[in-house]
Design a protein around this nucleic acid. Sequence first.
DNA 1: TATTTTAGTAAACATTCGTTCACCTTGTCA
DNA 2: TGACAAGGTGAACGAATGTTTACTAAAATA
Lengths: 187, 187
Amino acid sequence: MDNSQRLEKAKEFYSKHRRFPSYAEMLKLFGLVSKNAIYKIVQKWVEEGLVAKINRKLSPTPKLFSLPLLGFVKAGFPAAADEELDFLSLEDYLVAHPESSFLLKVRSDSLNGIGILPGDLVVVEKRTQASAGDVVLARIDSEWTLKILQKEKEKAVLVSANPIYPPFYPQEELQIFGIVKGVARKL
Amino acid sequence: MDNSQRLEKAKEFYSKHRRFPSYAEMLKLFGLVSKNAIYKIVQKWVEEGLVAKINRKLSPTPKLFSLPLLGFVKAGFPAAADEELDFLSLEDYLVAHPESSFLLKVRSDSLNGIGILPGDLVVVEKRTQASAGDVVLARIDSEWTLKILQKEKEKAVLVSANPIYPPFYPQEELQIFGIVKGVARKL
DNA sequence: TATTTTAGTAAACATTCGTTCACCTTGTCA
DNA sequence: TGACAAGGTGAACGAATGTTTACTAAAATA
């Protein structure tokens, strides 16, 4: 087992337990006997910038828990490993305020026009106020639905992004529960 | 500072350092003096299922690092906190094989029709083989582009999801570099 | 009011932590 | 062939870890 395979094992441990393994745990993980072996291995990872060590405690760097972002596609692709790459965590990218956010599975095709399809997961941030243009989770006829908020002469209108659905003009005050901040789709 | 505010602080620490704080660190974090106070607080979190303790080591449960998934929107929303909820990590949801995946920022509007818009981030899994219907990252005229792979009489065709782009019939062998497994959009 | 529970301090504990030093084997390279 | 670096074992170290017990003050409860 070479060093990069070991890193892979540590990664697995991390995504399973959500914490970095201790030296003793890595001993078992790598099938070694002496803690000093681990110490040297980890030291290399730290030098390579794969693992961060803050007063004797280890944590993974973005290279371990997030994906490389290739800014543009060019000839000669795939980019060499040495190149400067951004590493991006999708969780952090999509969710700015985890404490007030939740996910919702989209069931209707009313937002097709803006690329939100049935089956998509949307990240909703709890809010009672929204601006024109926001995609909002709002209450219409005692049902919660996703619509685009727009304003006509200072009055709120909820429109779809699909011509088969008519706009909705709320008669009383508009109940908004949250606004959509992100979309995630698996395919 | 009450107990849930403390949990929030621990969460913050976790998303910043990618590891759970030690008792000593929590002392500073919460402004307390005795480690026993921390011990009791953590014990409650463990009993509530917010934190996992495996032979004296702490790690967050999905409730801490992922978002609640509200399966369906219904009257009486928002769902009471007691209800059975799924917790989902977007990272895990979108990326099945992190070791062979990367992100790509979409620049063209050629996949509009299937809800992949310019500015979206796509999760690409490295592969050289693909099936009909897959969205692939392929080489066309010495450029890498995203297209939908289809077959016409056993021959591969790369089509767009936008009528203004014609289908591409590769004359020689088709170079596929990866297939798109997920889409992430911030709005 | 009397009593019990809750939430914290304080000190002592064994265990585990990461680190260091000495040593050994193996393969590489001049 | 000889020197040397790389990669590992093994033992010992102080420091930091989570745990336990005893005690106290405040808050909740009867």
